[in-house]
Design a protein around this nucleic acid. Structure first.
Lengths: 220, 220
DNA sequence: CCCACCATTTTGAGTAGTCAAAATAATTTC
DNA sequence: GAAATTATTTTGACTACTCAAAATGGTGGG
C-alpha cells in the first residue's frame, strides 16, 4: 500500500505532466509539493527503485505505467470527493480542494465506487476537471483559454484549472463558472489584461495568467 | 495538529476507559493498538509530556481533560462516518468500522458538521454506539447484556459492542440488530452458552462472551 | 521469605520522510 | 570560452514512529 507521501508525489507528477512536455523538472515537483529540492531528489530515487517513476538525473522525472495507474487512482478519488462535497454536502467549490487533499488518501475503492454511483458517474468535478474512469482512462482534451480565444465570439467556460480558494471565490462572484457563456471583448498584451463580458452584467478584468487558467470551447 | 498515531492512541484509551475502572494498563493499550508493549511505553511518555495523558509507571495511563477532548472528537468522526456509510452509501454495518478507521483521521470539522446535519444529528451509530456531541458530551449509559439479563423476559437490543465483521454478519443473519426484541430462554454457565429466542424464528446460541457484547434494555 | 512469573520499561537499532547547507553540473551571459 | 547564475544532487542530521530483546519491578505461591 503506497504511503500518503508516495501518493502525493505521484499525483502531482501526473498533474505536472499535463502541462509539461517530456520530463517534469525536479524543481517543479519541489514547489508543487512544498518541500526542498533535496528531498525531492531523495524521494524520487526511491520511487524509481520501486518502479513508479523514471529518473533521468539532472533532467527530470516521469511516471512509469505503474506509477501513472496509481496516480490516476488518487486523482479519481480527489475529484469524486470534490464532486460529492459540492453536490451532496453543498459545500462551496472554493473549499473542496483542501478537503479532498486529505480524504483522497483515506477513502477505499469500495467507498469510492458507492460514491461514484450515488453521484451518477460524473465525468467532471465541480471545476470542470475530468474524473479518471475506474479503469484509469482520463479524458484529456486540449481546450483554448480566455487568454488565447478569438475576440468578441461567444465561448462557453468548461474548466477552471486553478485551485486557490481566493481565485475560485472571485470567479464565482463574477459568474465565471463552468457552463457560463461569455465573450472576450478586449485583450491588451502590453498591460497583460483580458476583459470578459458576460450576457447580463459588468465586464470583468482578468490578468493574462488568470485568463489562461480558464478553459473554454466555442459556444453555440 | 495531532498525528494519526496520536489520535489512535487517544481514541483507544477512551474506548478502554469505558470498560476499565481507573487506569488503563499498558498491556491493554498495546493489544488494542497492535504494537509491542515497549512502543506503548515510549509513546505514552511523549503523550504525557504533551499533557494529553497521565502516566503512572508500572500502573497504567489515563486521559487528561485535553486528551479526552481530542479523543471524543475522533470518536465523533468515527461514528458519524459509520452512520453516513450505512445510511447514505448503503454499506453493510459489518464493513463500516474498517472504513471509518481511516476516514476519521482525514475528515475536517467543517465536513463533519455537514455530514451531521445531512444525517439529522443522529444520537447513535449503526451499532447503537452513542455519538459524542459536537461539544464533547458522550451519553454513556450502563446497560444490561444478554449475558446478565433476566431469563424469559422480553428485552430490546440497544447496542452491539463488538466490531469484528464476522460477528456482525452473524448477528445480522440471526436478526440480532439494535432495536430487535428477543428473549433469553436459557443460560448455561457451565457450557458458557446463552440461548436467545426472537419473535418469529429459530433460537440462536451464543457464547457467554458474545452475549456480553450485546447490550439490552427491558422491552415494552 | 524466596522464587517464578507476569507486565512493564529500557536499550539499541531501523524505516520513512524531512531540512540545511555544501558540492556539483549545466546553462546563460558577456 | 571563461565566469556567473541556476538547477540538482549529496551529505549529515533530525523527528516520529516502530520492533526485538534484555533488564527491571511487582505479585502470588509455595
Amino acid at each position: 500500500m503506497p504511503s500518503v507521501t508516495v501518493e502525493n508525489y505521484l499525483k502531482h507528477l501526473l498533474l505536472l505532466a499535463e502541462e509539461t512536455a517530456g520530463l517534469v523538472p525536479m524543481g517543479a515537483l519541489s514547489t508543487a509539493l512544498a518541500v526542498v529540492p533535496g528531498t525531492v531528489t531523495t524521494m524520487v530515487k526511491s520511487l524509481a527503485a520501486a518502479g513508479l517513476v523514471v529518473h533521468r538525473p539532472r533532467q527530470g522525472v516521469k511516471l512509469t505505467a505503474a506509477g501513472r495507474r496509481l496516480a490516476l487512482g488518487v486523482l479519481r478519488k480527489h475529484r469524486l470527493v470534490e464532486t460529492f462535497l459540492v453536490q451532496v454536502l453543498k459545500m462551496h467549490w472554493s473549499a473542496v480542494n483542501a478537503e479532498a487533499e486529505q480524504l483522497e488518501h483515506a477513502i477505499s475503492d469500495t467507498v469510492l465506487d458507492r460514491l461514484d454511483a450515488l453521484l451518477g458517474h460524473p465525468a467532471t468535478d465541480p471545476h470542470g476537471d475530468p474524473i479518471p474512469s475506474r479503469h484509469g482512462k482520463l479524458r484529456s482534451q486540449v481546450y483554448a483559454t480566455l487568454a488565447t480565444c478569438p475576440l468578441a465570439r461567444p465561448v462557453r467556460l468548461v474548466r477552471i484549472t486553478e485551485q486557490s480558494a481566493e481565485f475560485l471565490q472571485f470567479a464565482e462572484q463574477h459568474g465565471l463558472l463552468p457552463g457560463a457563456s461569455v465573450r472576450v471583448t478586449d485583450r491588451n498584451l502590453a498591460a497583460g489584461l483580458v476583459t470578459v463580458q458576460r450576457p447580463r452584467g459588468q465586464p470583468v478584468a482578468l490578468s493574462l495568467a488568470a485568463a489562461g487558467r480558464i478553459l473554454i470551447e466555442p459556444a453555440r
